Amino acid sequence: MPSQDITQRFLFEHADVRGELVSLNQSYREILAKHEYPEPVKALLGEMLAAAVLLSSAIKFDGLLVMQARSSGPLSMLMVECSSQQEVRAIARYSDDLSGDGLRDLMPDGVLAITIDPSKGQRYQGVVALEGESLAESLAGYFDSSEQLPSRFRLLADGRTARGFMLQALPADRQTDPADRSETWNRLSILADTLSVEELMALDNQTILHRLYHDEDVRLFDERSVIFRCSCSAERSGNALVSLGREDAFVLLDERNGEIEVDCEFCNTKYAFDRAALSELFDQARDHAQNLH
């Protein structure tokens, strides 16, 4: 069986190709436990979770990767955040009359945005249409065209376990002849396509790589843990109220009968602020501003 909540990189020693395998169990279930999603939404959200971890592991950065899919269909939004420390959270929005099964039915005319928000440096965003029958196909199309990095993805989720497999070509280094590079990429891709749904869901990473690439020289790196962790906090909720301004915040407080509740959409945690708490927030904000001058 796959290990619990890990991502693991692998590299071909004699080819310019890398890969990543991700397995999500507890973190995926914790996210689903926060909301009562229909089964098709659970599956697509799990696929996007696996994809976000795959991409965040492949990109060297310190910060946050955000994947957001939007459409005019019955599933209007999927959003996943994965930090460079492999901390994940996710949310979906859908209509009450949800019907259909799969990406094409649930998110017709959808658009996928991939945002890299580094702790330091410039924010980057790429956008691609959700084309094809699956999220995996859409991601492959994005990297083939936008990033010029031929890529293949397998994404599976069943409401309990989410699995992801990525194969990606690298810039020429070990193989400089274009014909050799093309032949190697095609061979490794064809072998990857032989991996069955049952194998990806049931086998551990080492067994999968041996099953696919026993004739290749493959280096499997150490596992890295993935966990569910929401970035919400009382402080961040308080800052959102302070951004309203003192007058508007206290008007809102009166409208809410003396208590403002700020809900986190991701984890359903509620942060409550009464008049004393709100006054303290603005006093602290005033003192902080004065100390800056």
Rank of each mutant, 00 (worst) to 15 (best):
A202N: 10
S237E: 10
Y271Q: 03
S71W: 04
C264R: 04
R154H: 06
I59H: 02
V226N: 02
V127E: 15
M67R: 07
F266K: 02
L45W: 10
R187P: 00
S145Y: 13
K120G: 12
D204F: 05
A162L: 04
Q8N: 08
N205T: 09
E20R: 13
R236I: 06
A172P: 02
D5N: 11
R89Y: 12
D177L: 09
V66N: 15
K270L: 00
Q4Y: 06
S56G: 03
A202L: 13
A169T: 08
A92S: 12
N205C: 06
V80L: 12
R219P: 02
L252F: 14
E261I: 14
T161F: 12
C264W: 08
T7R: 00
E199Q: 06
I31D: 01
P171E: 06
E280M: 01
I190H: 08
S138H: 02
T176K: 14
E223D: 10
R160P: 04
P171I: 10
D105F: 06
L156G: 03
S196G: 09
N268R: 15
N257S: 14
E81S: 08
R275A: 15
A52V: 13
G238W: 03
N186Y: 11
R104K: 11
E255L: 14
L244D: 00
V262G: 08
R152N: 15
M77F: 10
Q206K: 14
A92E: 00
M1A: 13
L55T: 10
R93E: 15
E39K: 15
A162P: 11
N186K: 14
S3N: 07
S146M: 13
A92R: 06
D5Y: 09
T269N: 13
G46F: 00
V53G: 09
E280P: 01
L55H: 09
R229P: 04
L191V: 05
S76R: 11
M48A: 02
D222W: 05
T161H: 11
C232H: 05
I59K: 02
L241D: 02
Y94G: 02
D5H: 07
I227Y: 01
E216H: 10
A192S: 15
G126L: 13
R29A: 08
L188K: 00
V262M: 13
G258Q: 14
R93Y: 15
F282A: 07
D193S: 13
V66S: 08
L64H: 09
Y37N: 04
P171S: 06
Q175S: 11
M107H: 05
A43S: 12
D109P: 03
S95A: 12
R275T: 06
A69I: 07
I116G: 02
R187S: 09
W185G: 03
A43M: 10
Q8D: 04
N291E: 03
L65W: 04
S23A: 08
G121T: 13
T207Y: 07
A129H: 07
P38R: 10
I227S: 06
L155P: 03
R9G: 10
Q290E: 14
S134I: 04
L139V: 13
Q168W: 02
S225W: 06
